[in-house]
Design a protein around this nucleic acid. Structure first.
Lengths: 145, 145
DNA sequence: CTAACTGCAAAAACTTTGCACTTTT
DNA sequence: AAAAGTGCAAAGTTTTTGCAGTTAG
């Protein structure tokens, strides 16, 4: 569905284009985001980066994620406990979150653009970022629980 | 669309049914939730209740909200800063949130049940609670900004 | 060289928790 | 009387901020 290397190059190009500096820490975070198939949290990214960059700080992780969010290259998934990030598919799409084990899965739900347009008309809102989340039980927890 | 008094009675009945006690603080919080048309935060509810119950604590607000959430009588809207609560329409529905002034509005978006069923089939998840949020600019902020 | 970035530590903010006291039933 | 609820304060989390030192361009 997507090629991590291509995505990595895209992200690097996007940073370059806006004249953001390519520090080793930043490049490593971008690599993780481009290659990770799941939806890591800031803490998880931080932990992984520390393998290669023991001096990496959480502040830098958060600052870089803020940058990528603002560039619309990373989608933030708001959870109660912390945020998770999706850097593979920057466009809006649904997420399924298990309320028991917190697993996150991408959902193949096509957003009906016409109904969003309708919503904009009736509400007067200019919709920028849809966030569609379905809380429930994942296959594993349905069985085990 | 809804009658605050009826909703109030519903909530009280739901508490009684499960043998939860009707303390004055709890009843007042339920009244606020039933009658407020917007989507108040825990802090806002707390502030309002203090008018009548100066000894009310935030802990009790949170504990009571947790109760009502668990009873599926109140819908929690997760925001980055805090949570807001919708006690008028416990069923799933969309919310429009202004990224500039944080105004929250109910969205009249009909959830397509068949596509949710399809999503359950393809994902294996048992969907319990959909959370549909559209971030964007409200009518006021489109103009002013 | 200099503007941008990092990293440390402290701060900030919301929410939860423990426990003694009070109150509903 | 007993179980449940309240309220205070402290603790727990995630995220942000300030600033001095470092580094990419």
């Amino acid at each position: 569905m997507f090629d991590p290397e291509v995505r990595f190059d895209e992200l690097i190009a996007a940073l370059k284009e806006r004249n953001f500096r390519l520090t080793p820490q930043r490049v490593e975070l971008v690599r993780l985001i481009a290659t990770s198939e799941g939806h890591p949290s800031a803490a998880q990214l931080y932990a992984k980066i520390r393998d290669r960059f023991p001096t990496m700080s959480q502040a830098t992780v958060y600052k870089t994620l803020a940058l990528l969010k603002e560039m619309n290259q990373v989608l933030e998934i708001d959870l109660r406990d912390d945020s998770h990030y999706d850097g593979n598919r920057p466009g809006p799409h649904a997420h399924l979150i298990c309320t028991q084990c917190n697993k996150i899965m991408d959902g193949d739900l096509d957003l009906d653009l016409s109904s969003i347009r309708k919503l904009e008309e009736t509400s007067g809102y200019q919709i920028v970022r849809p966030q569609i989340t379905f809380y429930g039980l994942c296959p594993d927890c349905r069985q085990g629980g």
